[in-house]
Design a protein around this nucleic acid. Structure first.
Lengths: 244, 244
DNA sequence: CGACGTGTTGATTCCTGTCAATACTCGTGG
DNA sequence: CCACGAGTATTGACAGGAATCAACACGTCG
């Protein structure tokens, strides 16, 4: 469970320019190297329990993880989707407010918390980058509030697909297909993200397939013939500020 | 519209110890004084338009403002409720992603953006406090995602009332009343916050009144005889981590 | 093969949205 | 002073979309 990976030099790290360390100078990277270690997680495995003390913070290097909240009666809501380069943990706080769970194989680059906090205090680059990333996450959370509060089931599904398509671009596209990606989530996880039931998710995916908005290749691989159409279905401003 | 108020010395400011300036030393406060100015807004007045260029950032000193997003067809979702000491604007970004609107009389303490960003770069106290506040806002946004995605209309209303009761405590309580506050929002604004229609909001408030969870004094003043009961109705963990 | 996890589809219920009528408060102006 | 209208709030009737309950299909792994 705690099996450490072969360490990757920060300079060679695939998320080097997007993660919390993006702005670091060489000497700062060296200090980060000293306090970092890798951890692997299997699909379904919990990375942090809500309200547990966290002794580390870190970045997702590979894979997908989720942040979820659960009510006493079992209703659960996903409140964040963590993709490579996303940051986990809150400097200055003891624990996580949410369950963090791996949905695929996940590689985390962890930093021991205390030294990381010290490093943050010493070097402005890390703190500054973290503020920037937190502001982005806040924007994403607020964007998601619109989805949860005001969109129909069909629009919710289309919004989720649009987000994943946006963050996971692929070059190898057959003609007549503008985007293509694997769903890293089960129907149930999608339901938890969207505030729906898994049956409704399944029905709406079928409906989008029937209406040719998407094409399925197996249960988990999605092809999008026309991204503009998908964004339209998502209820987003279709003047395409996002892609293309 | 731009009428400047009598400036208040930072040392005498009512939000001095909670706002973005909370950690500042005397000399930092002096630099803030130089770039700050007050602005008043009337109820209903827009403070910033979504996608507009913002040339200032600032703190709410008095009153209540809202952050909202609107879809092309008019559906709107409130994504933030700004109470005194809350921060408006995003250093490093050009504009606001949301409409910011005053719902009551609002006094804002504004800082010209460029000098404020410079000050942030120079002094770690402001940046650090801003990170802390942004992390809190992110938590609040995620908490709200659970409300929007998974709670029933009745639970949503109870959740909103609980939040306002928590942030606006009053000492002058008649016996048999554990909390008392004015609703700073119209039924429509509450609906936009909760992802409901104003009719449903009205009905659920009536239902909570009928069931003696709350007592109304006029349309806007709420009395809560039993806060535990309210939290229970909100679906929150009733072991009362919050109040009392 | 049978059990289990995952996903699809159908029948039905019910919560919330929609449409509509009415009440109340507060200015404004005749 | 009262009529009028605008904004806000309440309540009712009805419709519709998503939840619920349930059956079944598919793939994997023991």
């Amino acid at each position: 469970m705690l099996a450490k990976n072969t360490q990757v030099k920060c300079g060679d790290c695939p998320i080097r320019h997007r993660a919390v360390c993006a702005r670091c100078e060489t000497d700062e990277l060296e200090r980060l190297e000293e306090i970092k270690y890798y951890r692997n997680f299997e699909p379904g495995q919990t990375i942090v329990w809500s309200n547990d003390k966290m002794d580390f913070v870190g970045s997702v290097v590979k894979g997908v993880a989720t942040l979820t909240q659960t009510m006493e009666d079992g209703r659960t809501q996903m409140v964040g989707l963590l993709l490579p380069s996303d940051f986990v943990g809150r400097p200055g706080r003891d624990g996580s407010a949410y369950d963090v769970t791996a949905t695929t194989q996940v590689v985390m680059c962890c930093f021991r918390k205390k030294p990381f906090e010290k490093l943050m205090a010493d070097t402005p680059h890390i703190a500054h980058r973290l503020l920037e990333m937190t502001l982005d996450e806040l924007d994403a959370a607020r964007e998601w509030m619109l989805v949860l509060g005001r969109k129909t089931a069909r629009e919710k599904i289309a919004s989720l697909l649009a987000i994943i398509a946006r963050r996971d671009p692929r070059p190898d596209l057959p003609s007549g297909i503008e985007a293509s990606f694997d769903l890293p989530l089960t129907r149930e996880a999608m339901a938890d993200y969207l505030g729906l039931t898994l049956e409704t998710v399944s029905r709406q995916i079928s409906a989008l397939k029937r209406d040719r908005v998407i094409v399925l290749d197996g249960k988990r691989h999605i092809l999008v013939p026309d991204i503009g159409r998908l964004l339209e279905e998502a209820g987003d401003d279709s003047d395409g500020g996002y892609l293309v």
